[in-house]
Design a binder for these strands. Structure first.
Lengths: 171, 171
DNA sequence: CTACGTAATCTAGCGTTGATAGATTTTCAA
DNA sequence: TTGAAAATCTATCAACGCTAGATTACGTAG
């Protein structure tokens, strides 16, 4: 998707319908015959992001020699993913899209798969897998957001990740 | 601030310069004689938010009979604050403003005070106060963001907060 | 009380945005 | 070769953030 390339290079504010039309060398209305509106474009990018996210997390988990090591790898890979392609991560979590987990029925399979890829490394530690995974995910997401908005010291990123991992292990 | 009222009632997308001008019954240029641009307006709202945030957290901590109870109260109060006035919280954390913690010198005192109000209830538990506070804050913020974007089950909010508290206590 | 300089405010407009209506071209089967 | 359907275009809309330049209101000096 052209939107993703532009966003990664120049930020999402540079992604306009006219700019996309230029990029694909068509006029603006053509875009609206493929997507209902701009939000639908973001949503498509986000879904693509969740697919890549899931496979990155699964890889990271597979590289782990122990359950603990798998958890560490996933936590680290999570932040690497977020900071390696900030625009993609933004589309997945920060920009307004209609993507929800809320109701089981209408949740996109890509979102459920992403959740499962995190739950897989949580499962060995404690009984309440769903609760712990939600909270683990939230912690990692919070680390990303607060660092990205300049509220956390970038230099201590690895230590914060290690702390979250310790929390999960000990809790 | 009129911006905050409109945002809380109709969301930040309803807050336009023209709308603000209507609300205060002046023309648009008058607004630009008080604020450099729209971002400066958001920033002013955000700073106000951090002031209220700090006093809410201090209140919650003061209501705690024990160190542990203070921590619990603050964690709960954090999510209450975020969901009690979602637009204000958005201005503080999600919308693009120039507010940073990054460099010690140019960090707004309101931000530092907010950080301290959280650090105060973390201090009794463990040595690395700054690191733990950053991670604690990130976890709570993540809980807010993932629930707000429909990724976490609203029904399990209290359990997730309790889990984060347990993590801090045990870590 | 008048005249004037400053400050406050307004009208009008620029360039850009997301989105759409309606005309036009392209495509391909009958 | 023709004609309906699909694809694409030009032109435009209303709303946005923001600003230039004209205009009004006002306190003060004479």
């Amino acid at each position: 998707m052209a939107a993703r390339l532009i966003a990664e290079r120049e930020g999402w504010s540079a992604v306009t319908i006219r700019r996309l039309a230029d990029e694909i060398e068509y006029s603006q209305p053509v875009i609206y015959s493929h997507f209902e509106n701009k939000e639908a474009i973001l949503e498509a990018v986000a879904v693509e992001g969740f697919r890549e996210f899931t496979s990155k997390m699964e890889e990271a988990a597979a590289r782990g020699s122990t359950d603990r090591n798998a958890l560490e790898n996933v936590a680290t890979a999570y932040l690497d993913f977020a900071f390696g392609q900030t625009a993609l991560y933004e589309a997945m979590f920060a920009l307004p899209t209609g993507l929800r987990f809320a109701s089981p029925a209408e949740t996109k399979p890509e979102l459920r798969a992403a959740f499962r890829s995190l739950a897989a490394v949580i499962r060995p530690f404690g009984a309440e897998v769903e609760l712990t995974t939600e909270t683990f995910w939230a912690s990692l997401h919070g680390l990303v957001e607060l660092e990205r908005s300049g509220r956390n010291r970038p230099s201590a990123r690895a230590e914060r990740v290690a702390l979250v991992v310790r929390w999960v292990l000990g809790g």
